[in-house]
Design a protein around this nucleic acid. Structure first.
Lengths: 216, 216, 216, 216
DNA sequence: GATGAATGAGTTTTCATTCAT
DNA sequence: CATGAATGAAAACTCATTCAT
């Protein structure tokens, strides 16, 4: 997987797919999500899609590019958009950080659940494939951090957050939110995540589990 | 990987390994950690270990069993022992939950770093291999939860923790601590984790990022 | 490649080609010459010609027929014409065998260089493809030998040639001229062949490298 | 085929081959000689050798390396040895260049016929595969030319050869001898080459076909 | 205990070719 | 005339595993 493959896909336009090509996409997503990229053969994909293997390679060239073609569009939607479409609105419409966090989580969870399988693929391969990791992790950090930093500092000024350095806050939030998505979507393979679960997560991120009297 | 394979290994005694066998173990660990089980061939392992492939199969029978033979002992040490050897002592010796959490994290991190590669394998395959997931996740929950529950309730009685239900606390802690290990060890591939990092994590778990005045 | 395919092409009239069809021809020639027929895919040809693969098959039916369609016309021009257009004129206009040989070589080299790529294809495939060899070698011998025999015997009568049997002379000349074309066009991939080179070749064919005193 | 692959093979020691591995070699030689490298599949080789395809790749890694493993040893024997073992002896034992040429040709033809199939492969692929050409042609020139130059100049001093520059003589001889081997071994696929044929070739190289009176 | 030799069953990928539009 | 879509068949190559020595 070459260095520029990621960028190449980032800018690729979505083309109209034939019925068979859509079946390929569906089959690949299902199998990659279930068994992982490395444990899925193109023959299996072709069989599930009721298509010849040649059709897969005609369209995507290599198995690797097929993976990226599935992942990247979703990736683009989940991360960058977070800033402009989502953050912008949420941030203003919600008067409190708690509200923002709740809406943000709900929103991202909804998106992730709607494309659960692709998310499973992303998380699995992000952790499993060194090359993918090296390409995507920096991207995630850059994009996500730059926007969230603004939000955090906005609410810091409003006095809703402690005076822990923003960088540390980001790290902690990333860790927890990442762990949340990984455990809910991949480890537990949840079909849905109810309100209460989100509420608990928000509460944990804001106040932890210590009693308020034990604050330092 | 059959159902009872896990148990079989759990109870197996550690046998003395020949030099060559040790080299196999070392090579397998390095490669599985780096590239993942599915992307590592027995031929590669044999080559790195400077051993014949046949020797691997003589000892372990299948590639699958080799994986388990590497994972399980570490797994046993990390999780179950957590209760008796570690928890017990820590819990009593530390007067506060914060102290306990700090020592607990330090202790587990130290162990994980000392066997970083095996931990990377465990995390990667836990997420990647459906069968492994199904075998280990319930085990982790059962063992870890049962002991931690005791600790949490002890400190709850001492008033150091909020009155959130213990189950929810456990979930949140699992999520964060799991995310912490996954991101530090696998995604960031850290060689060491400094005190401050641990301090920040403990603080987050206890108090979150919200200002104390915003407590509900 | 069926037996009669060769003959079929030999008699086929050249049809007007559309622009796209010409691009196919150009692309095929370039690639076959460079990499050989067997190492060139129809996909590559189509890509270089900026044409769909289907267009190639529409016109030529099979990859094999495409090869023949490229080779045969050139072949017809190089060999049979040798007799009538070239030999006839040259033979009469030149008073000496040396002059004839020089003009003949010049003339054939000029033609071969003008169509170097096709010549490379012919030589490469003549040597590589058993079927082609079996079809073309006898043809070459028959056509070329029949005419050259006349010339040689004409000059033998004039006393310009030794009394070696004509057949042997032909063989030697074939061997040298064939080797000359193969080495210059294919092995050395020369763009041009200067006068001196031709002079040296003619001299060698006529007198060899032995000193005249060592004649037997 | 990488640049250093050639050198790698040049220095490789001949290892003992098992019966099956010998069958692979035999089968590959036969098929490559008959149909050419590019038109022979590893499956065919395996079938003819009554061996699994995997065995081929276990031993040679790639089809390319198999080709080189067949070609290079023969190549080494045919060209470099020409100098020391052959040339040295021949040159001294024969009093005339004609004698030398005759013995030289006989000797090389004998060797080539004994390994006719490998020679067919070498000639075919030398002409067909650009990469092989680029690796071997310079080698041939360097090795062969350096030794032959000595011989030619020795006999020039003895007055047995004309005063044509040695370089030109070499070129002509190469052209003819190359053409001779290519046509006899590959185009005509001769099983044997009789004395008379060699005699004719020698005579041609020394005196050409022109009558002695027409010398310039 | 160790290994060289061998392989069946796959794996990814390529290719010439067809056909409906 | 031209092509996008599709593919069966085969290509090169890989892999976990077996077994006689």
């Amino acid at each position: 997987m070459s260095n520029n493959m990621f960028n190449e896909f980032l800018s690729s336009e979505s083309v109209k797919l034939t019925v068979k090509q859509q079946r390929i996409v569906q089959a690949a997503i299902r199998l990659f999500a279930e068994k992982g990229y490395s444990n899925t053969s193109t023959a299996e994909i072709a069989k599930l899609a009721e298509v010849s293997e040649a059709s897969i390679f005609k369209q995507y060239g290599t198995k690797d590019k097929l993976l990226l073609a599935l992942i990247i569009p979703q990736f683009k939607e989940f991360f960058p958009s977070m800033a402009d479409e989502v953050l912008g609105q949420l941030c203003r419409s919600q008067s409190t950080f708690e509200g923002f966090l709740r809406e943000f989580l709900k929103n991202r969870i909804e998106l992730a659940l709607k494309n659960k399988e692709i998310f499973q693929i992303i998380i699995k391969e992000l952790i499993y494939k060194e090359e993918l990791k090296k390409e995507l992790i920096p991207y995630i950090f850059e994009v996500a951090a730059s926007r969230l930093t603004q939000v955090i500092e906005l609410f810091k000024e409003r006095g809703e957050l402690t005076d822990i350095p923003t960088g540390k806050m980001l790290k902690s939030l990333f860790t927890f939110v990442g762990g949340f998505f990984a455990s809910q979507l991949v480890l537990l393979n949840k079909e849905s995540i109810d309100e209460q679960e989100i509420e608990d997560a928000v509460r944990f991120m804001l106040h932890g589990i210590g009693s308020s009297s034990s604050n330092n």
